[in-house]
Simulated assay, not measured.
Amino acid sequence: MSGPVMNNINNVAKMILATGLLTLLAACNPASDGGGREGAEPPLAGADIGGSFTLTNQDGGITSEEEFKGQYRIIYFGYSYCPDVCPVDLANIMLGLKQAEKKDPALAEKIQPIFISVDPGRDTPAVLKQYVSAFHPRLIGLTGTPEDIATVAKKYLILYDIRDDESSSEYLVDHSRQAYLFGPDGEPLALLPFDGTPQQVADEIARWVR
């Protein structure tokens, strides 16, 4: 990674520290049966993460966060042309969601998975539609103008940097990696262990979704 990009990632780490997110280390040791979650406070409770957005979905329509009122939300930022981490992360997260849904089918009605692109130049609705369908049948892909994406990324503490060689269709986008779980009112609850196993993701979902 370039120097400026690494500085951006370090800044994200500082923001995470400032909001107390290091308590998320507990998420790496989830209770397999969800035991002990009653009365427990979510790791991200009270953190200033998230907020309103209005973006373009994979069908070319408009989607706002208000449409998910009453639903838990899994939100991951990335881009479809990502050569490595994004597809691996999404596969783990969505396999974890499928495992959680298999154990408790009612979860399918409670949780909405969302993928937000940090590469609006290439991630058109048609591109996103094909991409998200490979991971989960209910995964929504969102894109927008560069200004739209910059605004929503800032609200969700996501930093990204499109490399300077945009003259090539193969340019890369450096971005911070977070898999957020939000509650029914849009409140941040926890980070999902995207770099763990699908079972660990499923366990963390079961821990906080009521």
Results as ranks from 00 to 15, higher is better:
Lys14Gln: 11
Gly70Pro: 08
Asn57His: 09
Tyr156Ser: 07
Pro193Gly: 12
Gly141Phe: 01
Gly61Trp: 14
Asp33Val: 00
Ile116Lys: 06
Ile9Arg: 05
Thr19Arg: 03
Asp164Cys: 03
Ala150Thr: 13
Ser133Glu: 15
Leu159Met: 08
Lys98Asn: 09
Met15Ile: 08
Leu97Pro: 03
Val127Trp: 01
Gly183Asn: 00
Pro137His: 06
Trp208Ala: 08
Val118Gly: 02
Ile205Ser: 02
Trp208Met: 08
Asn57Asp: 14
Asn10Arg: 09
Gly61Ser: 01
Phe194Pro: 02
Tyr180Lys: 03
Asp123Glu: 14
Leu22Val: 06
Val127Ile: 13
Thr54Arg: 14
Ala134Leu: 13
Ile49Cys: 07
Arg122Val: 12
Ile93Phe: 02
Pro198Glu: 02
Thr145Val: 00
Tyr76Asn: 08
Gly35Met: 05
Arg37Leu: 08
Ala108Phe: 15
Lys98Cys: 15
Tyr131Met: 01
Glu147Lys: 09
Leu22Cys: 01
Arg73Gly: 08
Val118Ala: 02
Asp59Met: 04
Ile114Asp: 09
Asp84Leu: 14
Leu191Ser: 00
Pro87Asn: 00
Thr151Ala: 12
Ile16Ala: 07
Lys110Pro: 11
Val88Phe: 15
Leu90His: 01
Lys110Phe: 14
Lys98Arg: 12
Pro125Asn: 00
Gly34Thr: 00
Ala45Ile: 07
Arg73Ile: 15
Val152Tyr: 12
Asp84Trp: 15
Leu95Tyr: 10
Val5Trp: 07
Glu187Gly: 12
Lys14Pro: 05
Asp59Lys: 09
Phe135His: 01
Leu142Gln: 03
Lys155Ser: 13
Glu66Met: 08
Gln200Asp: 07
Leu21Trp: 12
Met94Glu: 13
Asn11Met: 05
Val12Asn: 02
Pro188Phe: 02
Thr23Tyr: 03
Lys103Phe: 13
Ala126Leu: 11
Thr56Val: 12
Ala108Val: 14
Leu159Pro: 04
Met94Arg: 04
Lys155Glu: 14
Arg122Pro: 04
Ile114Thr: 09
Thr63Arg: 04
Ala91Lys: 11
Leu139Met: 06
Pro137Gln: 09
Tyr76Asp: 06
Leu142Val: 03
Asn92Met: 07
Val209Trp: 10
Met1Phe: 10
Arg210Cys: 05
Asp104Thr: 15
Gly46Arg: 04
Ile75Met: 03
Ala91Gln: 12
Asp195His: 10
Leu25Ile: 13
Leu55Arg: 02
Gln200Glu: 13
Ala26Val: 08
Met6Asp: 06
Ser117Ile: 10
Pro120Gln: 00
Pro184Ile: 14
Pro43Asn: 04
